Structures are given as C-alpha cells and as structure tokens.
Simulated scan of single mutants.
Amino acid sequence: MTCSRRNFLAGAGAVIFTTGVGVNALAGRKTLANTMEDGKKRYGMVHDETLCIGCTACTDACREVNDVPEGVSRLEIVRSEPQGEYPNVDYKFTRISCQHCENAPCVHVCPTGAAFKDEENGIVDVDNFKCVGCGYCLAACPYQIRFFNPETKSADKCDFCKKTNLKEGKQPACVESCPTKALTFGDLNDPNSEISQLIVEKPVYRQKVELGTQPKMFKVPHGKGEIKG
C-alpha cells in the first residue's frame, strides 16, 4: 500500500480509539512477521505493556549508549491516568519511539536522502551529513517522534542502536536494560525468532496502521481501558 505525502501529513495527528483490542488490530497477526521473501533481515520490536513498570531504565540506557543530549529523547515511556479505585489502582505504560515503518513517510518526503530505510535490515535511519535541517521529516511523521539533535544539527530518532549496540553484536540498549523483559527485539523475517513467535502467541496491536505506514513496532496491550491506535 502506498500513501501520498498529503495523506501522511493529514494523518499525523490522527488518533483511533478502540475498546479492548479491536478486530482490525489483531486481524492477520499471524502473518505480520513474514512479509518479505528476499532473505534479508527485517528488524522489529515488541513492547509488552503488561510487563512494563514505567521505570524508564530503557530511556536512561538509550541516552547513555547513544550519547543523546539532554533536552531531547529517542524514546519515552508514557504513563496513563490512574485506572481503578484505591487501593486497587493500576497504570498503563506505553512506549513512544520510532516505529521503523516499512512505508516510512519521513523517507518519502526527505529531499536529500538523509532519511532512508536500510534495505539490509529494515531500520529507518538518518544520515547526519545529508540532513539540511528542513524539517520535512518531522512534519511528515504521523507518530511525531523525530527531533532536531542540538549537537549534530540534524534530524534524530531511534535507530535500534544500529551504530552502537547492534554494531557490537548486542541487543538495543533499551532491551538489555529492561528489568522485566518487556521489550523483545529481533528479525521479523525469521519465523523462529523470539519476536515472530511472540507476535503469533500474544495479542498485539500497532499504531495508525490505517495510514499504510506498516510499522514494525508492536505492542502487547495492557488490557485495561482503551487503546490509542
């Protein structure tokens, strides 16, 4: 599915509300993991909201490993309003970060090729040397997660630690630091990978799939209240 730049921009602020896990969010989830047949890797991540305790160890690890300056962040953990009544109060925590879209709007609108998808692993990345600071990618992202790095003077975002931990054969910093194992990272093209098996075994949803972005960030829903798509 191909989305025009106009459609991407129009959908940037779109929010969908469903009660529980909607039919559309789960439809065909057993086939989500394997959509490419060229043998290349296609990295994705699952955030299990039922396991996340909102400790933000992931954000701290990301900042340290990737030298992210103060005042900006590649990922955030957002806490919901209290759910339930005292003393049985609960919270829902969700991850806000790059979705590493198959059909990435930021890549389509970039005039210099600074925003690109690595065809070897599916990671959506930024070439700092090509970025001219036009801000098109920031405006086009429906998830509103890109920012200007005050030190590199270019667009920045999560790259699954491609230049740091992945380069060293490690898992992304956020995954390694999570005390409850709420994050799972791996190759979506490998049906035997932990992430592919998890997507088959558990209910998952992705945000704003109606825009045709085909995000590779999956979430296991908390199960209380409504899910923002």
Rank of each mutant, 00 (worst) to 15 (best):
T164D: 10
Y205H: 10
V21K: 12
V23T: 11
Q99N: 13
Q144R: 00
A25K: 07
V220R: 03
G169P: 07
I96L: 11
V15I: 14
C52R: 00
P191H: 00
C55T: 06
H108I: 03
V209W: 02
P191I: 02
K153G: 02
D67N: 13
N189I: 05
T59M: 10
V68T: 04
E194Y: 04
C137L: 01
S80M: 05
C174I: 07
E102A: 04
A57Y: 12
M36R: 15
Q99F: 06
V204A: 06
G135T: 13
N189G: 14
A115I: 11
F218S: 02
R79F: 07
F147I: 11
Y205D: 02
T152I: 06
V175F: 04
K117T: 14
E226C: 11
H100E: 01
E194F: 02
F185D: 08
A114Y: 09
P191E: 01
V175G: 03
M1H: 11
I195H: 12
A14T: 10
G20W: 10
N103C: 03
K130L: 13
C62E: 05
T18H: 12
P172G: 05
A12R: 03
C62N: 00
S80P: 01
F116T: 03
G212A: 09
L51Y: 08
K202N: 11
Q197H: 05
P221E: 10
K208P: 00
T18W: 13
T35A: 04
G225Q: 04
K216G: 00
P150N: 09
L32C: 05
N149P: 07
R5D: 13
R42T: 03
E151N: 13
